[in-house]
């Protein structure tokens, strides 16, 4: 029987639909033209120009500080949450799970407004710190879900075996539990990092003066600045994000 070509065509069409806009952006970032409408030959001038944009570097620094900080803290809390979800039986666990899971599906704009109102009500000055807190809140959910996945096929008699062989709580944690969960923890952390570094909506609400992050900087450049520069910057961001996600996926697969 001859195999139908429809699935292949449909798949290719869908991928083109997904990636064509991004390809246009990437190719245009190498376009020498000031305006994206005409092709004037390959050039790296926009990438070179980026080096001199001090505001971009400032925004990148903010973004990195927040991304590292938020992913680190959310890894600690998210791992603990996943552990608590998996290990303890309680009637409240269903609610616990729902609350951890909710931020994954909640509209970002709601979270953004909610956090903004909350910070204002508390009288906290908006700035890097509030962005950091906001990012931690949604990153926890992602980390918890990834680590939970690892825990589900974790043989807990291994922990009992370690205790049986003389390991106390501390030794069990560092010699057995953490090494075995490390792929999940790192994958969760990388995911949190990519989410944090390109978050726009929530950040937009809770950012204050002087705390511009890279995505917000890009947004304001679209309004006031030069499109080719944005193309170059976006391409770099794209490469960084894809690399992180690829690593995260690799770690999840290796673990299986």
């Amino acid at each position: 029987m001859k195999r139908s070509r429809v699935p292949l065509v449909a798949t290719v069409a869908m991928l083109v639909f997904f990636y064509l806009p991004i390809m246009v952006l990437v190719i245009n970032s190498f376009n020498a033209s000031r305006f994206g409408s005409t092709w004037e030959g390959w050039s790296l001038r926009w990438y070179l120009r980026l080096l001199h944009e001090r505001e971009i570097w400032y925004a990148l620094k903010n973004s990195l500080i927040i991304a590292f900080g938020a992913s680190f803290v959310s890894v600690l809390i998210g791992t603990a949450a996943a552990f608590a979800l998996h290990r303890y039986a309680s009637r409240l666990q269903k609610t616990h799970y729902a609350m951890i899971f909710a931020p994954l599906v909640m509209p970002e704009i709601l979270m953004g407004i909610g956090l903004l109102l909350f910070f204002v009500a508390l009288g906290v000055n908006l700035g890097l710190f509030t962005i950091f807190l906001a990012h931690v809140t949604f990153c926890i959910s992602y980390v918890a879900m990834v680590v939970l996945g690892r825990l589900q096929d974790f043989d807990f008699s291994i922990i009992e075996a370690a205790q049986d062989l003389g390991a106390n709580w501390w030794t069990v944690t560092w010699r057995v539990l953490v090494p075995l969960l490390m792929p999940g923890i790192v994958a969760g952390g990388l995911l949190a990092f990519t989410l944090s570094i390109d978050d726009f909506v929530i950040t937009f609400f809770v950012a204050g003066p002087g705390s511009t992050t890279l995505p917000i900087r890009i947004y304001s450049m679209i309004k006031h600045g030069s499109p080719p520069l944005i193309n170059a910057l976006s391409t770099i961001l794209l490469v960084v994000t894809f690399t992180a996600v690829w690593f995260s996926q690799r770690l999840m697969e290796d673990a299986k």
């Binding site: 008699s157 291994i158 009992e160 370690a162 049986d164």
Partner: peptide, 20 residues
């Protein structure tokens, strides 16, 4: 006494070897 302070050791049904 907690497990790690007892002079007994266990062979588990699932072996429970450390995979790493």
């Amino acid at each position: 006494l907690p497990p790690h302070e007892r002079k007994v050791n266990t062979i588990f049904q699932s072996y429970a070897l450390f995979p790493h």
